[in-house]
């Protein structure tokens, strides 16, 4: 680790000032701290957001669930409102990484980092959630822009994520055994307007699958998902899986997610 200065602002206004002056925001640190230890990342100044009260809290209002950016995975997994209104999201949070990761990692950190194999972005995108920042509100469809890239500007912080509550939803993943990240994860969410399907781990970043969405909007059944041909073209291949295997997993996990959503 290279030397750096550390500050822990108590208000969002102070946090924004620090970040505007060049400080790197530190949420749960599950990616940033590890890369700093490996000297792959060398921020000169850290602004630890854990003391900012405005960034915490989970509340349900009508058909919307709003989760503060600094909510730890463990808090989301255990929150009574999330479990009752959006159990698929609670389940996802409860199955990220391991116990240590869930105790520290945050939803805002995960979404802002946009790791191509992270779990949360698939829920955010499949739900058509809104990312609320210190500057504006961004629709999930506009937010995720591929490998570690998002619509966030320099100095812009996520304050909360607002999820419309789906009629039915489920998340299924198959873990890469070493990292415990999903090799492929599929989040399926059914709304009155139709079904949204977001895939993580399989491509350059989280993406929606039009073919599956179309088929499932017509018939929300595993068989309907099974009838969709999954093209391998844009998927990624690495040490752990070929494009063909990832394409297979998208199909299989979608069918399983639909079955799980149907109960």
């Amino acid at each position: 680790m290279y030397a750096f200065t550390y500050q822990r602002p108590a208000t969002l206004a102070d946090a924004v000032k620090l970040v505007a002056s060049g400080a790197r925001p530190l949420a749960g640190g599950q990616t940033l701290l590890a890369s700093m230890k490996l000297r792959l990342s060398a921020p000169e100044q850290l602004a630890d957001l854990s003391g900012v009260a405005e960034l915490s809290g989970i509340r349900k209002s009508g058909n919307t669930l709003t989760i503060g950016a600094m909510s730890r995975h463990r808090e989301v997994a255990g929150n009574a409102d999330v479990k009752a209104a959006f159990p698929a999201l609670a389940w996802l949070a409860d199955h990220i990484g391991d116990r240590q990761v869930r105790a520290m990692g945050t939803i805002g950190g995960s979404v802002a980092n946009n790791d191509p194999a992270a779990c949360y972005p698939s829920a955010v995108l499949a739900s058509g959630a809104t990312i609320i920042t210190t500057q504006r509100e961004i629709a999930a469809d506009d937010f995720f822009q591929g490998l570690f890239a998002t619509a966030l500007n320099e100095g812009e912080l996520i304050t909360a994520i607002s999820f419309p509550i789906p009629k039915r939803a489920a998340y299924e993943k198959l873990r890469q055994k070493a990292s415990n990240f999903p090799l492929v994860g599929v989040f399926v969410a059914q709304f009155d307007e139709g079904v949204r399907v977001a895939v993580t781990g399989a491509g350059n970043g989280v993406f929606r699958h039009a073919g599956l969405e179309q088929a499932l909007s017509q018939h929300f059944t595993p068989e309907s998902a099974a009838s969709v041909k999954i093209h391998a073209d844009d998927l990624n291949s690495d040490l752990h899986a070929s494009v063909a295997y990832r394409a297979n997993l998208i199909g299989v996990l979608t069918q399983r997610a639909v079955a799980k959503a149907l109960g």
């Binding site: 890469q176 055994k177 070493a178 990292s179 040490l239 752990h240």
Partner: peptide
């Protein structure tokens, strides 16, 4: 070494 950490070498 492609499996140079626990991210890629499964224990």
């Amino acid at each position: 070494l492609l499996t140079g950490s626990f991210m890629d070498y499964a224990m």
